[in-house]
């Protein structure tokens, strides 16, 4: 079984390749991606990329991609800590201000940034 990308970014979904599986949360929120990653981590998947990748704030970009491993025997405590802290951070930002309704051009920019960030992780992961 392969590692899995959890994403709501159409550009990441369209660019999917054989090296990883993908769960596409079409039209779902940034926070939903983190919540699904958290559920998987509690079931024994391990986090492979940082949930807050990128300096673009969680109430700016609507897009997020996270990679987790296949299911392991034991729950990974570091993964739980990082995802839980990240979820708290996202909620903090969203409680101040909701993500704006961006124009298509800006949405495409956000898609590209998220795509490039996750791509840099995939390159690191799959070089051997």
């Amino acid at each position: 079984m392969k590692n899995t990308i959890i994403t709501n970014n159409p550009k990441v979904f369209e660019g999917k390749q054989d090296k990883t599986d993908i769960i596409y949360l079409k039209d779902d929120s940034y926070l939903s991606v983190l919540l699904l990653a958290r559920d998987k981590i509690h079931k024994g998947h391990k986090l492979l990329t940082h949930p807050l990748s990128g300096s673009v704030k969680p109430n700016e970009t609507p897009y997020k991609s996270i990679i987790v491993t296949e299911k392991k025997k034991e729950v990974d405590i570091d993964s739980i800590r990082i995802i839980e802290e990240s979820i708290q951070t996202v909620k903090k930002f969203l409680s101040t201000k909701k993500t704006p309704l961006w124009t298509d051009k800006i949405l495409k920019d956000f898609q590209l940034i998220d795509y490039c960030l996750i791509q840099s992780a995939i390159e690191s992961m799959t070089q051997f």
């Binding site: 986090l47 492979l48 990329t49 940082h50 990748s53 990128g54 990082i82 960030l117 996750i118 840099s120 992780a121 690191s124 992961m125």
Partner: peptide
């Protein structure tokens, strides 16, 4: 400060 946790 990479995205991939193993790099970190």
């Amino acid at each position: 400060e990479n995205v991939y946790l193993a790099d970190k």
